Amino acid sequence: MTFSITRRGLLIGSAAGLGAFGLTGCDDVVQNPNVQSVLDMAETLTMKSQRLLVPKDKLAREYSEADISPTFRPNGTSQPDSEAYAQMMATGFADWRLKIDGLVERPVELSLADLKKLPSRTQITRHDCVEGWSAIGKWTGAQLGPLLQSVGLKPQARYAVFYCADQLELTLDGSGTYYESIDLIDAFHPQTILAYQMNGKDLEVAHGAPLRLRVERQLGYKHAKYLMRIEMKDSFAGLWGGKGGFWEDRGYEWYAGI
């Protein structure tokens, strides 16, 4: 739809324009008030437009095997720089567990094997980075919505918050740890999956092994990698900068729909 095209062009144009302020790419902080004003307007317009005009279960475009990109750049971190992650990687993530807690009736911890036993979805979709590049990949994983239903969401749950293994800044309060969040509309979208395979193979470390989020109707920085925990919350209160994500706390917009 027209507003989606305009949205993507606006975001990419804003990111490209950051160079004028000494800021470029996904790993930079949007601090200039003029840039922030543009992004805030785009976020408000797009979220209202998409939620009003687009059915909540409408799928992002899916592609054929022939469309898969020959190269797919890693977005964000290429490997978490922590001893704990290195130890998990050395054992093929045999000891890794995904914790799901917060506003749920039945908190759980799931191994990679547990997740692979769940009904899976495979989708070939385009990844759009705010830096301006795109690539098409094939993703397989467990659908998030049914998994959340299985743990029993409490009535006040509104957001799924994803905590990751990578820390982009060394901070005592943990605010340098990568995290992201989505609301229940996106959490229960059919294409929102916890992906453990890319292009028919287990995820490589650079692409988020052992598990990453795929939320196909949003830009790449929302697709959190190296997942460790999902917490169901009613608000972002008490979450570091209070904006619902690592980059959002530093000026990016929370709703990155395309």
Rank of each mutant, 00 (worst) to 15 (best):
A86P: 03
Q31C: 06
L11A: 13
Q167H: 07
I230E: 06
G9D: 13
L45V: 15
S14F: 05
P210S: 04
A165P: 00
G244Y: 01
Q167T: 00
G145V: 06
V205D: 10
P210I: 05
L153Y: 11
G25P: 13
K138T: 00
V29Y: 06
G208P: 01
K117T: 14
C26Q: 11
N75G: 10
A135S: 15
F72K: 00
Q167W: 00
Y226F: 12
G25T: 12
L170S: 11
I124P: 06
G17Y: 15
R212Q: 03
L23S: 14
P70N: 13
Y196S: 15
Y226C: 00
L239Q: 11
L11R: 06
W133N: 02
G200M: 08
T122W: 08
F93L: 05
Y159N: 03
Q167K: 07
V205Y: 10
T77E: 09
A20M: 09
A90M: 02
A84P: 02
R229W: 10
M232N: 07
T44D: 15
L23K: 15
A157F: 02
D57R: 13
M228F: 05
M1H: 09
Y252H: 09
K58V: 09
Y179A: 02
A195T: 12
M89R: 10
L194F: 07
P190D: 13
K116S: 13
S111F: 04
W240L: 07
G251A: 02
G251E: 00
D28G: 14
M232W: 03
N199Y: 12
Q50S: 10
L98A: 04
L211H: 02
T77W: 01
A206Q: 14
K201M: 13
E216A: 09
K99T: 10
A86N: 04
M47T: 09
S37V: 07
T122P: 02
L227V: 08
Q79H: 09
W96S: 04
W254D: 01
A187R: 00
C26L: 10
S150T: 05
I100N: 04
P70R: 05
S49T: 12
L213Q: 02
A142R: 02
Y85Q: 01
A94T: 15
L147M: 03
M41A: 15
A66K: 10
W247G: 10
T177C: 08
M1C: 06
L110W: 05
R8M: 10
Q36K: 04
Y196K: 03
V161H: 00
